[in-house]
């Protein structure tokens, strides 16, 4: 049953990916600028323009460009079907290689951030719901006003100023490692994993140290909505009939709270999934503040430079990851809530 459901979802996801790929291909060509101007800055002659246009393949009809991009025109070269996302028009490097460099940085940052945010938000949300008006509840109210009132880059800059410049307990915002540290060989692209695989505990600890402030910034921002969602759903669950029945049956308070939490977790997990997909590109400001070369920064650079292949590649990868996360959530949802049937 589960296999059939997952297969069905994967097939639907594939169709979504194809539709989105084609839509993005045409949509970015509606952007109000011609990317060729970047190439002819020092030499804007007609000949140079034609040369740049040829080198980017933009001299061909759009349908030929699309077929080439999809990998359906073997005479034009490889494309998506052959696993080739094309080359960046900014750097000339293969897009797959560039995304392979930037994506792990973002995944590492947001996965750790969500994990920490989850560990903090769930107990706080529970506590806040089980004791309305208590200290935790009042604290959550103040915090949600505080954290939500300023954008994340502002908090990031404030944290840099306070913890790096004033207190000196955080490292300089220079990426995942100090520039003078020799990096371990790239195996997975995740510095925390690669450093452990290479037996470099010093690098692992340094990476954690460098991740401390960006993770704290994201946790500070992400915890707010998760706490609120857990709290609201807990309150609703605690008022439901099955909790009333459990209370009447004399079940211990901790067990009742566990049942209520299980009921509250499903919508909270959905929120986390949506936030995770959003943060793949939305962590860009935190990446920028802490000089982390992540996918968000890559996306912004590509958009500003009208780097069509890179934009297409980023959208494709973010979509694929988001769809995978949603699928995973659906499966988790079913595991938490026995009422869900495939």
């Amino acid at each position: 049953m589960l296999l059939r459901y997952v297969t069905k979802r994967l097939l639907i996801g594939l169709v979504q990916l194809v539709v989105l790929t084609v839509a993005v291909f045409f949509l970015i060509r509606l952007l109000p600028a011609d990317p060729i101007s970047r190439f002819v800055g020092l030499n804007p002659s007609e000949e140079a323009y034609a040369q740049a246009e040829r080198s980017l393949g933009l001299d061909r009809p759009v349908h030929v460009q699309l077929l080439h991009y999809l990998g359906l025109a073997p005479s034009q070269g490889t494309g998506l079907l052959q696993g080739d996302l094309g080359d960046s028009w900014v750097s000339g490097s293969p897009i797959a290689q560039e995304i392979g460099t930037f994506l792990p940085v973002t995944l590492e940052l947001i996965t750790i951030s969500f994990f920490v945010a989850f560990l903090i938000a769930v107990p706080v949300g529970m506590l806040s719901a089980t004791r309305p008006g208590g200290a935790a509840d009042r604290g959550v109210f103040v915090y949600s006003l505080f954290a939500g009132s300023q954008p994340e880059f502002w908090w990031g800059l404030l944290f840099v100023y306070l913890f790096f410049f004033v207190l000196g307990v955080a490292p300089a915002p220079l990426g995942l490692l100090s520039p003078m540290t020799s990096e371990p060989a790239v195996i997975t692209g995740f510095i925390t994993i690669d450093s452990l695989l290479a037996g470099r505990l010093d690098v692992f600890l340094e990476a954690l140290h460098h991740l401390m402030l960006p993770v704290a910034t994201l946790v500070f921002i992400l915890s707010g909505p998760i706490i609120k969602m857990v709290r609201q759903n807990m309150v609703r669950a605690l008022q439901s009939d099955f909790v009333l029945y459990a209370r009447c049956a004399g079940l211990p308070a901790r067990r009742i709270a566990f049942y209520a939490l299980r009921a509250a977790m499903a919508p909270s997990m959905t929120l986390i999934g949506i936030l995770y997909g959003f943060m793949l590109g939305g962590a860009v400001l935190v990446e920028s503040v802490f000089s982390l070369g992540g996918l968000g920064q890559y996306a912004i650079r590509s958009i500003l430079a009208f780097d069509y292949p890179a934009i297409q590649g980023v959208v494709l990868v973010i979509t694929a990851i988001s769809l995978s996360v949603y699928l995973l959530l659906d499966i988790l949802h079913a595991m938490i809530d026995p009422r869900v049937a495939y």
């Binding site: 800059l157 410049f165 300089a172 915002p173 220079l174 990426g175 520039p179 003078m180 503040v289 000089s291």
Partner: peptide, 20 residues
Amino acid sequence: VMKRVPQSSNRVVILRTGQA
């Protein structure tokens, strides 16, 4: 070592600490 630090305010802060 030429390091990318996109935020100019961070370049200022790091220079002031003497690390760059």
